[in-house]
Design a protein around this nucleic acid. Structure first.
Length: 269
DNA sequence: AGAATTTGACCTCC
DNA sequence: GGAGGTCAAATTCT
């Protein structure tokens, strides 16, 4: 037990070190407007990060599983379910914090992302059904963003869209205008919830179209979309593209006021 | 044919 | 046990 705890700590330290190196590399490239970091070195760092965290999960899995935080446990469970094809059980449903609420005059809100409807439910005390949508890129890019749309008013028709999670797909929208109440556009209200939980694979975090953040990197690289069987997932090839995209859409920061405990700069632990 | 939607069943959380 | 969220087979659309 002690030995595994020590090894786990060493692995975490290693992972942090590699993450810091990667961050420095990306920051340097940003400063020099050079958007093409040495791909092989980036891959090397990311692989090491993934290895470290996977090893920690493996060590935790072997021993002190019951004592770890629920959030980490769900990651371990996710890894387990990814590794065993025979387990038909679903992962734990976790009620996620609302990322964004938006009231529109149309049921189809053109937020620049592609959504696929996956469910509809009649809700208690509501005369209208609630529609459930997931990002089209849930499986090909592991973008786990979902949104719910329900009608909240008959005349004039009003629809409330509630977003959960942030887009990790490369499908970055090309418009990011937040409309005010006098705007002629259909979007009439935006509100951000500032209580974000620690993301897990069930509730993948990362950037929405309004919020570009560093998690684009970690989420894309932590779990390759096509490799659930190996202990250490393979590196996604989208890293470099995402880096470019992130820089390309860097202007988005202008629109959003970040909460203090949201998207804290990662400077090690 | 492949993508998207519908809808009943299943699952988790409270 | 009920409510709400998700899955997945069947169906429809492009």
């Amino acid at each position: 037990m002690e030995e595994n705890h020590r090894k786990a700590m060493e692995e975490i330290m290693r992972g942090c070190e590699f993450a810091n190196q990667l961050q420095q590399l990306l920051l340097n490239n940003n400063n020099t407007n050079d958007l093409t970091p040495t791909t092989s070195f980036v891959q090397y760092l990311v692989n090491n990060i993934i290895n470290s965290f996977s090893n920690v999960l493996f060590l935790i899995d072997k021993h002190d599983f019951s004592s770890i935080a629920p959030g980490v446990r769900s990651v371990v469970n996710m890894e387990k379910s990814c590794k065993t094809t025979s387990s038909p059980t679903r992962g734990p449903y976790k009620r996620r914090n609302t990322t964004l609420e938006k009231v529109t005059e149309t049921p189809i809100d053109d937020d620049g992302h592609q959504w696929r409807k996956y469910g509809q439910k009649n809700i208690n005390n509501s005369q209208y059904p609630r529609n459930y949508y997931r990002c089209t890129h849930k499986y090909d890019q592991r973008c786990l963003t979902t949104k719910q749309v329900e009608r909240i008013q008959q005349k004039p028709p009003l629809y409330k869209a509630t977003y959960y999670g942030h887009h990790t797909c490369g499908n970055m929208p090309n418009h990011h205008i937040i409309h005010g109440p006098n705007d002629t556009n259909s979007s009439i209200l935006l509100s951000f919830n500032n209580t974000f939980s620690v993301p897990t694979n069930q509730e993948s975090s990362s950037s929405s179209h309004d919020l570009v953040n560093k998690d684009m990197f970690s989420t894309h690289t932590a779990f390759d979309s096509s490799n659930y069987t190996s202990h250490v997932p393979t590196l996604s090839s989208t890293l470099e593209t995402d880096h470019k995209s992130m820089m390309q859409y860097g202007f988005l920061y202008d629109f959003v006021e970040f909460d203090d405990d949201f998207f804290l700069p990662f400077d090690g632990f």
